[in-house]
Design a binder for these strands. Structure first.
Length: 226
DNA sequence: GCGACAG
DNA sequence: ATCTTGTCGC
């Protein structure tokens, strides 16, 4: 797969911030999701003191949640980790992985935030806009926003607010377990995003997409001398 | 100035 | 993200 939009990747911190503000204007918060047959999970693994990282994509069959394709690539770090500029660090390697991907997914789930971001342009928004595919941000922790603890039952959720605006949802995917932070990436509404994450996490706290791609990249990292 | 801060 | 062991529980 190839991205539908292009922009420079060698940027200064300020240039990256300007780019985010510009691209955020194109993010769609309405449902553009149609028939979803394949769902992709993307993730990147690192190793401390190493400038190498491994990016992976796993495609699941929407009905069975079984893995139908997976790709892994290694790359070198080209951008530091800066809260709010996460996508500039993980997208370069992820794009290399997308180049190798044969199956075109109708939905992408990212490890991180979508519009629950200071400039409403987290990793999930960047990925969704780059490939023009509906994308959801599902993070294990919060970047920003205030919220009340959702009820303890599976499926319970409470709004994530930033400056009086609902930027995401704190969703309990399993009873009595820590909730996850769901936000719109691009081309999908928050309610629909929460429905998908709940469906994708029938047994564990994190969606299967994340779990599968997570173990994929970690095994690959270990296999490359760790 | 101080604290917060996706992975 | 990664550094790290055992341990409690289904």
């Amino acid at each position: 797969m190839q991205p539908v939009i292009h922009h420079p990747w060698t940027l200064t911190e300020q240039e990256a911030i300007s780019l985010q503000k510009q691209l955020a204007l194109q993010v769609k918060t309405e449902d553009q999701v149609k028939e979803v047959q394949h769902i992709a999970g993307v993730d990147v693994a690192y190793h401390v003191a190493e400038d190498v990282l491994v990016a992976g994509i796993v495609v699941l069959d929407a009905a069975s949640l079984q893995v139908v394709e997976s790709v892994v690539v290694s790359d070198s770090v080209a951008f530091p980790y800066i809260p709010g500029l996460f996508s500039f660090r993980e997208l370069p390697p992820l794009m290399k992985a997308f180049e190798k991907l044969q199956t075109v997914p109708q939905l992408i789930v990212c490890d991180g935030q979508g519009i629950a971001h200071p400039r409403r342009f987290g990793l999930a928004s960047h990925v969704g806009l780059l490939y023009d595919i509906p994308a959801i941000g599902c993070g294990k922790t919060r970047l920003l926003g205030e919220y009340a603890q959702p009820d303890s039952h599976r499926g319970a959720c409470s709004p994530l607010l930033d400056e009086g605006e609902i930027v995401g949802a704190v969703l309990r995917t399993q009873a009595d377990t820590k909730p996850v932070f769901v936000s719109v990436g691009h081309g999908i509404s928050l309610p629909t995003a929460c429905e998908w994450i709940t469906r994708l996490a029938p047994k564990y706290r994190l969606p299967e997409t994340t779990r599968q791609v997570d173990q994929l990249v970690n095994k690959a990292l270990a296999g490359l001398g760790n």
